[in-house]
């Protein structure tokens, strides 16, 4: 990028190589990085109907904002949003409002589904009756709905706002818990194994750090007041996140190293676990690794105690 006066005057970021960028040059840099990621990993084809998972947080808003730009430049790429209301009091109402407002303003179709309507209970109430961590239940059922609904609605790709920090956390969590099978499902694109029951999932923000994403969101007025899910303190992920941020501060570049080394072994991981094949849940027909999918197993438990 050219050295510009604007960049030395009002920089919003200092890149690892030392270069400073102003708001408008950083916006270009960030979008360029996302478009490069899309090309490098072949995330989006010539003609697609993409649905972006929109939580209302900065990552998903940034993702949708950029995909919407892409769609305007390229009419063969259609973009809509999907939001899941898990039913988390004091948190989801706020982010839901942000999501709706954003879609209305940008004329993006929002497909909204709730745990309450689909499963009969809000997450808050499920936690009361299940002996499980909130994030476990939340994650399994949200992924289940996202996949099911995107497939039913005929989308060709499901895009999520996962950034480089999220991916690093997942890689380390799987490492610490000896769950390499879960790592084999990570990466910038997954679920493409010619399986019609899975809508391939893509992560266009894969190479953007959480901080870069926040700066982009802030600079483009996408950042709302801070809201945090009340359940997050209970999560193992939060511990891993703090550890990685401490490391990054002491040893800059740690997170990029984790991602780069992971990308090197990912093809081996994927082919290593492919042999085991994918089965289907004998209740809901969604993809599952054993007889019953995780979502149906949870829903069974809920039925029993309800």
């Amino acid at each position: 990028m050219k050295k510009n006066n604007c960049c030395s005057k009002n920089p919003v970021i200092k890149l690892p190589a030392g270069e400073r960028l102003c708001k408008s040059h950083f916006t270009k840099y960030f979008e360029g990085k996302v478009f490069r990621t899309i090309r490098q990993f072949n995330l989006i084809g010539k003609k697609e109907r993409i649905v972006a998972a929109l939580s209302g947080g900065k990552d998903s808003l940034t993702l949708l904002h950029i995909l919407n730009k892409l769609s305007k430049q390229n009419p063969r790429i259609k973009v809509e949003a999907i939001t899941i209301d898990e039913g988390i009091k004091g948190y989801r109402e706020k982010t839901l409002k942000t999501a709706k407002k954003f879609c209305k303003k940008n004329k993006i179709k929002l497909n909204l589904f709730s745990f309450k309507k689909e499963f009969g209970l809000k997450l808050d109430n499920m936690i009361d009756v299940l002996n499980e961590k909130p994030c476990t239940v939340c994650g399994i059922l949200r992924r289940y709905l996202l996949n099911k609904k995107s497939k039913e609605l005929g989308f060709t790709k499901l895009a999520t706002g996962h950034n480089l920090d999220d991916e690093c956390q997942s890689i380390m969590m799987n490492q610490f818990k000896n769950n390499m099978q879960a790592s084999a499902r990570l990466g910038p694109i997954s679920g493409v194994n010619k399986n019609k029951k899975f809508v391939p999932r893509i992560k266009p923000l894969y190479l953007c750090t959480e901080k870069e994403t926040a700066i982009y969101a802030y600079s483009n007025n996408l950042l709302d007041n801070f809201t945090e899910c009340p359940n997050i303190t209970e999560s193992y992920r939060a511990e891993i996140r703090n550890m990685l941020n401490d490391f990054e501060q002491k040893f800059p570049g740690t997170k990029h190293s984790i991602i780069n080394s992971f990308l090197q072994i990912l093809p081996e991981l994927k082919s290593g676990f492919k042999e085991q094949g994918l089965n289907y849940c004998n209740i809901c027909q969604e993809p599952a690794s054993k007889g019953k999918c995780n979502a149906c197993r949870l829903l069974d438990k809920i039925k029993k105690v309800k």
Partner: peptide
């Protein structure tokens, strides 16, 4: 001071 951490 604005937190960059995603809230869940």
């Amino acid at each position: 001071i604005i937190s960059v951490i995603s809230g869940g």
